[in-house]
Amino acid sequence: MPTNALSRLLETRDWLLADGATGTNLFNMGLQSGDAPEFWNVDHPDRIRKLYSDAVEAGSDLFLTNSFGGNASRLALHDGQSRVGELNRAAAELGREVADAAGRDVVVAGSVGPTGEIMAPMGSLTHEIAVEMFHEQAEALKEGGVDVLWVETISAPEEFKAAAEAFAKADMPWCGTMSFDTAGRTMMGLTSADMVKMVGKLPNPPLAFGANCGVGASDLLRTVLGFAAAGPEVPMIAKGNAGIPKYVDGHIHYDGTPELMGDYAVLARDCGATIIGGCCGTTPEHLRSMRKALETRPRGERPTLDQIAAALGGFSSTVDGTEEGGADTPSPRRGGRRRRG
C-alpha cells in the first residue's frame, strides 16, 4: 500500500483530532428524524460543506464523510439503493473540496456504517453479499477522493471482516471501529480483547482501529484500556459520545459539556489512543475544547478506572466483559444508542 495522507500524519504526530457527530450536527441544521442524511450530499451540499468545514475550523485533523448509511441495504429503506455511487461520490467530493482548502493537512475519511442486517448464520446476509455492498460503497468513496476508508459502529465480527475484505478489493487504506455498548461488549458479544485478536489476524490490517459511540465517554475509555492491555500492533482510535443522551423538550440532548470532552480527550490520549474524536452529541464547540486540552495539557500516566469515573462519570456496568466470568447486566440508569450521530 503506498504512503497515504493518514500514514504520513501518524508518522509525525503523537495524537490526531478526529471530528464529532454527523447526525447531531445535521439535526441542528434541520434534518428530520427518519430522513436519509446521505440525500443531503446532493440536495443540500452547502450544509454538508458546513458540517465538514465546522470540524476543520474547530481543529480536526481528520473528518468523516456524510456516508454512514450509504450502503445499498440502508439506502433501500429510503428507496435509494440505486444511488449508492452518486451519494457516496458526492459525500467524498465535498469532503475533498473542504480538506484541500484547509491550508494544512486534513484527512478525508470515507464513513462506512453497518448494513443494518444480521449476518449469516444467524441472519440472511451472506459474507459475499456484505463484501459486495461494502465494495460498491468503497469504490464510490475512492472515486470521490477520500484518503482512507473508515468502517464504524460495527457490532458483528463477521461484518467487520467483510468490510476489511471489500476495502482490500478497492485497494484502499482503512480504519475500523466497533461499538461496545452492551456491558463493555458489542451487541454481538465481542470484547475489546477479542477485537485486538481479530484485527491482528486480518490479511489487510487497518491503519488504526478502536471504538466509537457506545454508551458514554467513561465506558469508551474502559474499552480503550482493554485494547491497550491486549497489546495491539496498530494505533488505537477513541471516538466517544459527548456524555449520555437525555430527552429534553422532545429532543435527544447529550449532557457532556465542552469541558468534560476536553478531559475525555486528554484521558483518551493517556489511555493510549492516537486518533481521538467524538461521536453522538459532539459539536464543534466540544472539538475546540478537545483540541485545546490536547495541545496544552502534558501527557500523563495511564489512568485507572477510578480516575476515569471521577473525571467523566460512572460506568454503565461493573465489568467490561474481559474478566473471568464475563459481562454483567447494564445498569438501568444508563442506556446506549447504536447509531452514529
Rank of each mutant, 00 (worst) to 15 (best):
G256L: 01
A228Y: 06
G240V: 02
C213H: 04
Q32G: 13
D147G: 10
R49F: 10
H135V: 10
A76W: 06
V151I: 08
T283C: 08
T177I: 06
G95Q: 01
A229R: 10
E93H: 04
K292R: 13
S33P: 13
A265Y: 03
D147C: 12
G243P: 03
G69F: 04
E152D: 06
M29I: 08
G277D: 09
S82V: 13
C271W: 04
T322V: 04
P232I: 02
G335E: 14
S218A: 11
G184L: 00
E233K: 14
L190R: 05
S289T: 06
A293Y: 00
H251F: 15
A211P: 07
V84L: 06
E128W: 15
M29L: 14
E128V: 15
G144T: 05
D306Q: 10
D181G: 15
L17T: 07
D61A: 12
L287V: 05
K50Q: 15
M178G: 00
P235G: 04
A92R: 02
A156P: 03
I252A: 08
N212C: 09
I48P: 09
G116I: 02
M29W: 14
K50E: 11
K169Q: 13
R96T: 07
G231P: 02
G336I: 11
A310K: 12
A327M: 11
G256E: 02
R74S: 06
L31N: 03
G321C: 10
P205D: 14
T329D: 15
L9S: 12
M1K: 08
H78C: 12
V56T: 13
F180D: 00
L149T: 05
H44S: 13
D35F: 11
A91I: 01
P45M: 11
E117A: 15
G176H: 01
A76M: 03
V112G: 06
G281K: 00
F160I: 12
L9E: 10
A265H: 04
T65V: 08
S73Y: 10
M187S: 14
D105T: 15
A101N: 02
